[in-house]
Design a protein around this nucleic acid. Structure first.
Lengths: 136, 136
DNA sequence: TTCTCTGCAAACGCTTTGCACGGAT
DNA sequence: ATCCGTGCAAAGCGTTTGCAGAGAA
């Protein structure tokens, strides 16, 4: 909460109650939530919250580089608070999304063929550790 | 055309006129087209073509591992004939999508932390060579 | 006949837009 | 009075579904 408020101030976004809550949600839970998930969970605390506000707020966060959107499963937009570089692993059984550390792979390692690379997203798919051990 | 027909046969998909045309389109043009683009362009040759057929056909291709879907720009689904591993570079100015060769980076290089990795998609974003030279 | 392929039209679901109310400055 | 944040309701748009007709086997 404190941290979220500060982050917003640093980016020149006025830290309204809703915005702080939404950012805090992204920072605490690291579930790469959809708009629906954010809305459903925060509605418990903020019954008046609307989806429009969640959409508006996430749009601001992305513009100001506080969050990123990612498409992990089939055309489902998910959101992630911008932290350090990492890849995402999507399990095709349980559909959970895991953060995966990169073993020192950065943009420079990829032949960019003259393009100026500003962002790099790596999406892995397969069966997660959990589902494997359950013998699926 | 020949090649597309063979590929379909090899995968046990009966090579109907529409299917061959759609696969040939993916193989020839490498524009990572959207459904809309495929539909618009093939309609010239096949005036009776419907979008539903394009959707149906691409779904079959993906099931049979002949094509892949990718989300490069903002929630736009694009399609790519399955070839060798490569990354995609999206230009945020002209929105073109380039294929980028990987410098020997494969799934194994990424710490998969116990998950079984079956697919790896790398999406780069930035300004392309072309737009850079135009001084944007 | 039976099964497959195709395509229209409707339904669906996520996201965006328009607009108006309320609170803060 | 003005500006900003919020939220309802409607519109928008890409995708999916249901169903029926055409064509191949």
């Amino acid at each position: 909460m404190q941290r979220a408020t500060e982050m917003l101030r640093n980016k020149g976004i006025s830290p309204s109650y809703h915005r702080v809550k939404i950012l805090a949600y992204l920072l605490e839970k690291k579930t790469h939530p959809t708009v629906e998930e954010i809305y459903r969970n925060l509605s418990k605390e903020i019954p008046t919250l609307s989806k429009t506000t969640v959409y508006n707020t996430l749009k601001i966060f992305i513009d100001k580089d506080i969050a990123k959107s990612l498409v992990a499963g089939k055309n489902e937009i998910r959101y992630d608070a911008t932290t350090r570089e990492h890849a995402h692993f999507t399990c095709s059984k349980c559909h959970r999304i895991y953060d995966v550390e990169l073993a020192g792979i950065l943009e420079e390692d990829i032949l960019s063929e003259g393009h100026k690379v500003e962002d790099c997203q790596i999406i892995l798919k397969g069966i997660c550790k959990n589902c494997l051990s359950k013998g699926n």
